[in-house]
């Protein structure tokens, strides 16, 4: 492939890649905000986050599909699905904290990594048992007719659902950041993140904050699941890659830096789709190659200001 043809392919594919990249990047960022929320309060995170996304997609298939079949309007069905997902995922988050995180304090330094990976494996297998191994279509409330834009010689296609994904996930992220910065609870979470014993002395119930952060983190993954279900087919292994890519986003952007996560999420989404112009199968590997490269260069992530340990 010579340079000219590479430039030609780029010129043709770039606008579409940017649009698609932003859509999927926003999902990675949304899931990664969940990592941020728990990591800042507990120094742990849920490696099953991607599978929480999958469970949410499966639930939205069941609720949306079921209600739509019985004649309820799609919008109402979507609201019902969101309600179910928020409740179930919050409970799942609480359960994970109670079962896989809390009892493992002090059991090796990495017990939580192993146990949440265990949760991931369990959820995948349970989803296969409950929903089977098929890839299932979830209807979109906006229909399946892509919006086509003509930019001179280049055409871009985008599904209305994808516009919704971008808008909703950015909206959700802004809402979460606002909540964390402005609300009393959010400030309590920041206090716990900064210094848990001191926060406890100030009368903050650290236990509750930790549980809340896990619930919030899971709900974010659940929201991402509801959003992507109509554009990706729902199946038991759909969450593995988004979960791990979001994790890469969190590491590169800095697990303590929500804005870094947002920027890196969108950027990595675009990089993925640009790479896909040339080699579709490399798309899934490129994020992780970048992760390895960046960790080699700056082990604490791009935006992290590393603290020193007192000896």
């Amino acid at each position: 492939m010579d340079l000219a043809s590479i430039a030609e392919m780029l010129a043709q594919g770039l606008p579409q890649a940017i649009v698609s990249g932003l859509v999927y990047g926003s999902i990675y960022a949304l899931v990664a905000q969940g990592y941020y929320v728990t990591f800042s309060t507990t120094d742990t995170l849920n490696f099953a986050q991607g599978d929480f996304l999958m469970i949410a997609a499966m639930l939205s298939f069941t609720v949306l599909g079921g209600l739509a079949l019985s004649g309820v309007s799609l919008w109402l069905a979507l609201l019902a699905a969101i309600a179910v997902v928020v409740v179930v995922l919050a409970l799942m988050g609480i359960a994970v904290e109670r079962i896989a995180i809390r009892p493992l304090r002090g059991i090796f330094s990495f017990g939580w990594i192993l146990s949440t990976v265990g949760v991931a494996v369990i959820l995948r297998q349970m989803a296969e048992i409950i929903w089977g191994r098929e890839h299932m279509r979830v209807p979109s409330v906006f229909g399946d007719v892509p919006i086509r834009l003509n930019l001179g010689t280049v055409q871009i296609g985008i599904l209305p659902q994808e516009v919704f994904i971008l808008a909703a996930s950015l909206g959700a992220m802004i809402a979460v950041l606002f909540f964390l910065k402005k609300s009393r609870l959010g400030k309590a979470m920041a206090a716990v993140a900064f210094n848990a014993p001191a926060a406890a002395l100030m009368g903050i119930n650290v236990r509750h904050i930790v549980v809340l952060s896990y619930a919030l983190s899971s709900v974010l993954a659940g929201l991402a699941g509801v959003l992507v279900a109509p554009v990706l087919f729902a199946h038991a292994h759909m969450g593995t890659l988004p979960g791990l890519k979001a994790f890469a986003v969190g590491i590169i952007g800095g697990l303590g830096n929500p804005v870094g996560i947002l920027v890196v999420g969108l950027a990595l989404g675009i990089v993925e789709f640009v790479v896909a112009i040339f080699n579709a199968s490399l798309r899934d590997a490129v994020t992780f190659l970048i992760l390895i490269a960046i960790l080699a260069w700056r082990p604490m992530g791009l935006f992290d200001k590393s603290g020193r340990e007192k000896v």
Partner: peptide, 24 residues
């Protein structure tokens, strides 16, 4: 070589990446 210079559980993170890249 690059990963183990840092403290903390970076090996877990990089080896996840290794697993995915190798599989792909």
């Amino acid at each position: 070589l690059p990963t183990l210079r840092a403290r903390g559980h970076f090996l877990a993170m990089v080896t996840i990446a290794l697993a995915i890249v190798t599989f792909v």
